[in-house]
Amino acid sequence: MPDHDRPAPFMQRHHFLLRRLHSLAGIMPIGVFLMSHLTTNSSVVWGLVNANRIPEGHAGAGTFQHEVNFIHSLPYLILIEVFGLWLPIAFHAVLGVYYATTGRPNHARYPYQDNWRYTLQRISGYVGVLFIFYHIATLRWGWTFLIPGGTQWEAQYAASTLAMALQGGGDGLTTPGLLVSAGYMVGVSLLVFHLANGLWTAAITWGLTVTARAQRRWGLVCAGLGAAMMVMAWSAVIGFATLDPAQARLAEEAVNRGHADPAHVEPAEILTQNPEGGRP
């Protein structure tokens, strides 16, 4: 029955706007954040290049701690988090789940690669929502009862507590810890796919890639980006799942004390190449 008297529901009146905002939110801020987040977190691996500047413990962990310290030095962090991240993610997630339920995947009958990605985009969305919720709830909101071993993540010991959270405690990788790490592996992989594929579809949605050839070309760009992000994501998860918390703690304390600064480079330091690695 069409309702002639009542105005159409909010969702219907602003259908197109909401669809476009949903698309936009996925790229900015969420997509951009994901890229920077993966860059930060994969520093547990690429930070090893700072071994000469972080004398004690695991240099990757130290680098990561340094990054975290920078983030936590930002003013009004909670406001950035709520309005720049949590609300956009919630908006993207709620609308996305609603939109996804309007479709009926049919890759079994039409097993084309594009159609598989259609299905996977929706699966990665559903799983991604659960994963992000678990990730934020356990690490940011302190719902430690969801973490095997009950580790409380602490910003000043970012790497070691994260490693313990992933490993199921501080005594090496336990079976529940392995499950958490595997879950992280799956979760971040799906989110990276979701972003890369989302970038590809967004270009069609917004009408940037109008021809099949343009779509193929942009697809290669998205695939490249996705592959790069996948490397960062996997290295982050593997890096933390295998990180020795004790070694990490040493590096964290060094960084927190100001005895190590992977970002700080003095010209003299480059010239002298102190073999001990420590600062005077």
């Binding site: 259908h15 197109f16 669809r19 476009r20 309007t102 479709g103 049919n106 039409y110 084309y112 594009d114 159609n115 990605r117 259609y118 299905t119 985009q121 590809w200 579809t201 069609i204 949605t205 917004w206 009408g207 940037l208 890639t209 109008v210 021809t211 099949a212 779509q215």
Partner: peptide, 30 residues
């Protein structure tokens, strides 16, 4: 905007109409 970009349409079209080109062009116009 309800298109999900599965792109099955263009593959099953017996007349090989570039439907996904149209979807992108109309997406832009919209």
């Amino acid at each position: 905007s309800d298109c999900g970009n599965a792109q099955n349409c263009v593959k099953v079209c017996p007349k090989e109409i570039p439907l996904t080109d149209a979807i992108a062009a109309i997406g832009r116009a919209a």
